[in-house]
Simulated assay, not measured.
Amino acid sequence: MLGNDARRTRVANAYFSLFMAVGNILGYATGSYSGWYKIFKFTLTPACSISCANLKSAFFLDVAFIAVTTYLSIVSAHEVPLSSNGAVHAGEGAGETEEAFMWELFGTFKYFSMPIWIVLSVTALTWIGWFPFILFDTDWMGREIYGGDPNGGLIYDNGVRMGALGLLLNSVVLGVTSLLMERLCRKRGAGFVWGISNIFMALCFIAMLVLTYAANSIGYVNKGQPPPTGIVIAALAIFTILGFPLAITYSVPYALISTHIEPLGLGQGLSMGVLNLAIVVPQTLASPKVS
């Protein structure tokens, strides 16, 4: 459907980011609500406190939505069996008729030009920065901003819920940016937009360090006191602004790698697989080891 068109690729990924943002907004709204245990009263037991019951209820809702959306996907998407359309592609190149197995995926590296390697390298470095934030964003809010203890107490839980609210605002900005993605890339260029978004990301991560230092300097952390309103607003602002670079990260690299790989005749699917390798590798490096 993209027809090897870079503009269509950007638009398609922008819509992907938009719908993902809508889902994130609903999901983080679920996480920021503290009254699920009142609706699903059976989740509150002597062995499961209010925080546990809220989390359990969110998981029940998650399972229900996954079941519904999976059913809709299976019913709506009708795939054509490979054996029935083999004759259609019989006269085309072998790269379009074969599956991109791992050895074929790595075998394409010898065809890569310098711009492709730059896109892959920047993508890998960018995701090394994103994964720790995605893993520990709400924990950072509960520990460093609210000064709570993960093993007990409502202060940490309040911080986690406030972090979920920040991620909700993050998703709102992500959705709005996705709607404006094509206009931004057409006016300034995809590479320029991606570079600016990475600068925003770095500044926001530095701001998180500064805010952590400021919270510790005030002296309320680990004393059972709520954080000052200004500290909370600043943390929410950081979460919100990060929605802009996150939307760019979800969309622009795919369009750039597709633009550079398609002229080599390697195929759209293979180009997406190559870029996903650049994402998976830093994920394994950035993910913490659980003992």
Rank of each mutant, 00 (worst) to 15 (best):
28 Y>H: 14
101 F>C: 04
269 G>F: 04
273 G>T: 05
64 A>F: 03
232 V>M: 10
251 S>G: 01
273 G>L: 03
243 G>W: 09
269 G>D: 08
234 A>G: 02
289 K>Y: 14
118 I>S: 04
52 C>T: 01
35 G>Y: 12
282 P>I: 00
226 P>N: 09
223 K>H: 14
75 V>R: 14
133 F>W: 09
52 C>D: 12
225 Q>L: 14
192 F>N: 10
219 G>Q: 04
87 A>R: 13
11 V>A: 13
237 A>H: 03
12 A>S: 12
245 P>C: 00
11 V>R: 08
71 Y>V: 07
65 F>M: 10
231 I>M: 15
55 L>Q: 13
5 D>I: 15
173 V>H: 05
48 C>V: 15
275 L>Q: 02
189 G>Q: 04
31 G>K: 08
20 M>G: 11
234 A>F: 12
219 G>F: 11
269 G>C: 06
80 V>N: 02
149 D>Q: 05
218 I>D: 07
263 P>S: 07
166 G>T: 10
2 L>H: 06
240 T>K: 10
259 T>E: 15
61 L>M: 14
286 A>Y: 05
24 N>S: 14
203 L>K: 01
129 G>R: 04
50 I>T: 12
138 T>W: 03
206 I>Q: 03
252 V>Y: 02
38 K>A: 13
143 R>C: 05
57 S>D: 10
72 L>Q: 05
5 D>Y: 05
269 G>N: 03
289 K>N: 07
7 R>Q: 14
248 I>K: 01
126 T>G: 09
167 L>G: 02
